[in-house]
Simulated scan of single mutants.
Amino acid sequence: MLKTAVGRFRFVALLEGWSFLILLFIAMPIKYLGGWGLPVTIVGAAHGGLFVLYMITLLLATISARWKLGRVVGAVLLSFVPFGTFWLDARIKRDPA
């Protein structure tokens, strides 16, 4: 999976997706229901770094695989949707070009 630009993008997309879910469904409830904000600080920073890495690897995969604009825009939009990167990974796995 990590041997190609698309494979590296898929890997980072999955990490970014997991960090987003952990932020939304674990860290934020702890902050707002439990009154403890540290998990949001830690997970939020990790998620932010992974999001930047997601965008960089998306650019590299786009150049390498010559993805069309529609796929790139879809990948950006899906990064803002819970479980979106997992759906994207399944689509890329089925049709990487």
Rank of each mutant, 00 (worst) to 15 (best):
L24N: 05
L2A: 06
V40T: 15
G44H: 12
S79T: 01
L21K: 04
Y32C: 06
T62W: 15
G49C: 06
A5D: 09
P29E: 13
R94N: 06
T4H: 13
I22S: 02
L78Y: 10
L77T: 04
G17E: 01
K68W: 00
A46M: 09
W67C: 08
S64M: 07
R91V: 03
L58N: 05
G48M: 08
Y32N: 12
D95H: 07
G7A: 14
G44Q: 01
K31T: 04
V52M: 10
L24M: 15
L77F: 05
T62A: 15
A97N: 09
L69Y: 07
K93P: 04
I22A: 15
M55V: 15
M28H: 10
L78Q: 00
V72Y: 07
G37S: 15
I26P: 04
V43H: 13
K31D: 06
L33Y: 10
F20D: 00
W67V: 12
F9S: 13
V6L: 07
K31P: 08
I26R: 11
G17S: 06
A5N: 08
V43L: 08
M1D: 08
W36Q: 08
F9I: 12
T57G: 02
L24R: 15
L2I: 10
H47Q: 09
L33H: 13
F80M: 05
V73Y: 03
F51V: 11
L14K: 14
F20W: 07
K31R: 11
A45P: 02
I56E: 03
L15K: 03
L59F: 08
S19C: 05
G35Q: 07
